Amino acid sequence: MRARSIPSIELDSYQRAARLVLAHHLVTATFPDRSALATVRRWTTELREDLLATFGYRLEVTETTARLFTVADRLDAGAGTSTHTGRPFDRRRYAYLALAIAALGRGAGQITLSELAEHVASEASRVDGVELDTERAADRDAFVDAVTWLGVRGAITLADGDAGRWASDPDSGEALYDVDRAVVHA
């Protein structure tokens, strides 16, 4: 293990980097904080070797992201993601998240929330048991939860507008997002 050869004066920094990637499998320029990616990038070589040797995890680091690929050895119902309010994602939110990531991967550098909702609704209609009806408040709320998850991680950045207002009334509210393709890809 490379951690054993790290000088004790730098061990705190290495341990912080390890905790970051273990707690947040996706680290970006803004998530979980602005210093996290630099900390992880500093220890990339050591982390790659130690995480692979210890857990069998693969770490990929680019200029804009660090992504930890883990190996699930058992199903853990509590290991999923949650909304910004702490409520666990349900099947619908996961579906909207996956479809939004796919749409953002094919789209332009900017997209409105209503355009993204149209893309997701179109693709959702092709999947049995999944539907996004922007006329239903519950569907809009679930969709905005998925979009907010992407925003927190830096995949999209709000350029103008308000997603909450769109969720309340799509006819009077709108939001415009800048898309970070590297984070979307990660």
Rank of each mutant, 00 (worst) to 15 (best):
M1T: 09
R2F: 07
A3V: 10
R4G: 05
S5N: 11
I9P: 00
D12C: 06
D12N: 12
S13M: 01
S13H: 06
S13A: 09
Y14M: 01
Q15Y: 10
Q15S: 11
Q15D: 12
Q15F: 06
R16G: 00
R16Y: 10
A23P: 10
A29W: 03
F31D: 00
D33I: 07
D33L: 04
A36L: 02
L37Y: 05
A38I: 01
T39P: 08
W43A: 01
T44M: 06
T44P: 00
T44I: 03
T45F: 14
L47I: 03
L51Q: 03
L51N: 10
A53L: 10
T54E: 14
T54L: 09
F55M: 05
T62W: 01
T64F: 06
R67W: 08
L68A: 10
F69P: 00
A72C: 07
L75D: 14
L75Q: 13
A77F: 15
T81K: 12
R87E: 05
P88I: 03
F89G: 07
D90G: 13
R91S: 15
R92P: 01
R92F: 05
Y94I: 03
A95N: 08
Y96I: 04
A98H: 12
A98Q: 12
L104Y: 00
L104F: 00
G105P: 06
R106W: 02
Q110W: 09
T112L: 10
T112G: 08
T112S: 13
L116N: 07
A117H: 00
E118I: 10
H119A: 13
E123S: 15
A124W: 00
R126E: 15
R126Y: 13
D128I: 15
D128A: 15
V130G: 09
E131M: 11
E131I: 09
T134D: 04
E135K: 15
A137T: 11
A138D: 15
D139G: 03
D145P: 00
V147K: 03
W149D: 02
V152G: 02
R153M: 04
G154V: 04
G154P: 08
I156R: 07
D160T: 11
R165F: 11
S168K: 15
D169V: 00
P170I: 07
E174C: 01
Y177P: 07
D178A: 13
D180Q: 09
A182M: 04
V184D: 04
